[in-house]
Every structure is written in C-alpha cells, then in structure tokens.
Nucleic acid binder design. Sequence first.
DNA 1: CTTGACCCTGTAGTTGCTACAGAGTGCATA
DNA 2: TATGCACTCTGTAGCAACTACAGGGTCAAG
Lengths: 136, 136
Amino acid sequence: MKIGELSRATGTNIETIRYYERIGLLPAPGRTAANYRSYGNAHRSRLSFVRHSRELGFTIEEIRSLLDLSDDPARDCGEADRIATAHLEQVEAKIAQLARLRDELKRIVGRCRGGAAADCRVIEALGDHRHCESAH
Amino acid sequence: MKIGELSRATGTNIETIRYYERIGLLPAPGRTAANYRSYGNAHRSRLSFVRHSRELGFTIEEIRSLLDLSDDPARDCGEADRIATAHLEQVEAKIAQLARLRDELKRIVGRCRGGAAADCRVIEALGDHRHCESAH
DNA sequence: CTTGACCCTGTAGTTGCTACAGAGTGCATA
DNA sequence: TATGCACTCTGTAGCAACTACAGGGTCAAG
C-alpha cells in the first residue's frame, strides 16, 4: 500500500510516518517505479504498535526499546514489563502533581468578585507564592 | 541586583531569565557600565509572578495576558478569572485523560510472567488496540 | 598578574511532530 | 491531447519553553 493508505489505515499523519522512518523507528519500505513508498502488513502492524504506545504516553526512546524487544523473540520479556511499569509510575506521579495544581487553581479561581484588576485576587495569588498550601 | 542574584532569588535559570526578556515577557532592565543587566524589585516581582504561573501550568501566552491585566489596574478583572478557570478545566481534562491511561497501563503491566518476548503480554497489548477497554 | 566567578551575545539543541515549498507522477475528464 | 486534480517526493523550517554551549568581556581577591 502507498503512504496515504497506510496513513488512513492507522490514523497517522503522512508527515509523521515519514518522520518515524527518518528517525529509524520504522524501517524504510520498498519503492515503486515512481519512487513511491510501498508498505506491507508488517509495516502496518509496527506503525500501529508505535501509535498505540504513543497514545499511552510512551516516549519514542521507550518505544524503540520495546520494538527492539519484540524484534528479538528470544529475549527476556522482563524488560518490557520494567519499561511499562516505570512509565506507569511516571503517569501516576504526573496525575498526583496535576491534582495538586488543580487544588491550587480551585482555590485561586472564583475568588474574583468582578472588581478592577487592582484588587484581583487571582492576580494577587499568582504573584505571591506564599498563598499556596502545597508545594509545586 | 545582577542576573545571578535574581536567578537565586526566584529560583529561575539565568538562561530562562534572558529568554523571557527576549520574548518580551520581562522588560529589558537597565545596564551597568560593564553592560551587565541590573534588576530592581519590580523585576523580581514580575519574574516571581511568571514562574509561579508557569509552575501552575499556564502557558507563556496566558501569562502575557495576565501580566497585561495586572499592568493596567483599571481593567476588569473578570478576564483573569476566565483565563484561570479555562486553565483549571484543561488541568481537569488532562487528569481525566491520564487516569484513563493509568488504568490501561495497569491492565497491561504485571501480566508478564517472565517468559520470552515472543509470548510477552505487554508487547502484545501494545500492538493491538482492540485489547483496550477505553478510548485514548 | 593571574585565577576564578561572574556576565555578555548568538546560535543550536531538545521532543514529537506539523507545515510548507517546489517538484514529479498518475489517472480521469473536456 | 491537454489539463486538472489528487497524490507523492525531498528538504527545510516552525512550534513550546526552555537549555546548553562557544567564544568572548569584567571584576575582585590573593
């Protein structure tokens, strides 16, 4: 299939597909007589793997490691688990951090009673870190 | 005070301070005879405002709007509240999205029983979107 | 008088794409 | 046959929000 078809099949931007090839995440496919890229099912699977991993927030480098693992079926799969577990921990840390921000923002918004900016509690709270209850 | 002192006083990287000046977020300070930047308390307050807002996840453009507001004390402060409220909604949306990712990741990790990569459930789950329970 | 800490400008790198510009290809229609 | 349109190609530049140099100048202490 040509790049446009692969794009539609995987919901991936054409430019993104070429980008993945350029950084070595996808192998360079064969070419037609007109120098068009020509993909097969292996390419589509690999791209789906990449896109799904990206949607789950894995970085390109993490995905590279995961692809290396899946390319070598004899290798120990514990590393895949470690990568995924480490990523899960990062996601949980990010959620906790955002929850603290949310609480701080909640305290800040809604305090404005529609006066002039000179008396604005929102701007005041943003200017002075000491108003905060938790670290961020 | 010189840039290093301002950096320590606000916990901001020196390069970042110069960057903020370059993009017009901080006004260009006066210079000493040796062409060193020379800051006063107004600069320090403004930079604290910027850093605090960044820590709370506001974008540079949002901060620019908030600074415009606080620079003009006569203006209506409702806009500051709108910006902060909109940002709060974005944070809440991001938390919800990350929570979905976390749940998906939790389902994926820990399924590996330490075999070969060929049988790895983690890699399998990443390759096939149909295993997912929620959209992401 | 030299060492070290500080400061300057300007540019390039980071992550993960996205958006062109300028050119070629392939197929259907007037 | 021409021509219009969709598609593809390469290469480069842009985004956010910094961060990291390189290659120089300044200044106080020993």
